[in-house]
């Protein structure tokens, strides 16, 4: 197997804001009601990880595609753009 997602994100430049632009609306829904937990699979930056029986958000590496927002079976993700000037910053695009 080739490069990991961590290797890939390491190539990118991010201007990380101190607060997350992504928020799970109700954490209990993810654990109690969401069998599929699609965020763990569809996110191209592996932002969502299952840790100690909760979903953690590693918003620092978010590529801002929006897939989690519309792909979450419970629409349980509050998704805003990072504050102006923050977030991923393409070099080549």
């Amino acid at each position: 197997m080739g490069a990991s997602i961590e290797d890939k994100l390491f190539l990118d430049r991010f201007n990380v804001h101190e607060t997350s632009h992504l928020k799970i609306i109700d954490g209990a829904v993810c654990i109690d009601d969401c069998e599929q937990q699609l965020c763990l699979y569809i996110c191209p930056a592996n932002v969502y990880r299952l840790e100690h029986n909760r979903i953690s958000i590693n918003y620092e590496g978010c590529l801002e595609c929006g897939s989690c927002r519309i792909g979450c079976p419970h629409l349980n993700i509050e998704w805003k753009f990072p504050t102006g000037g923050y977030g991923v910053r393409h070099k080549f695009g």
């Binding site: 490069a3 290797d7 890939k8 994100l9 190539l11 990118d12 191209p44 930056a45 590529l63 595609c65 929006g66 897939s67 991923v88 393409h90 070099k91 080549f92 695009g93």
Partner: peptide, 9 residues
């Protein structure tokens, strides 16, 4: 040499 990784719809 991989230089950048991005995602989009």
């Amino acid at each position: 040499k991989p230089a950048e990784y991005m995602a989009h719809w």
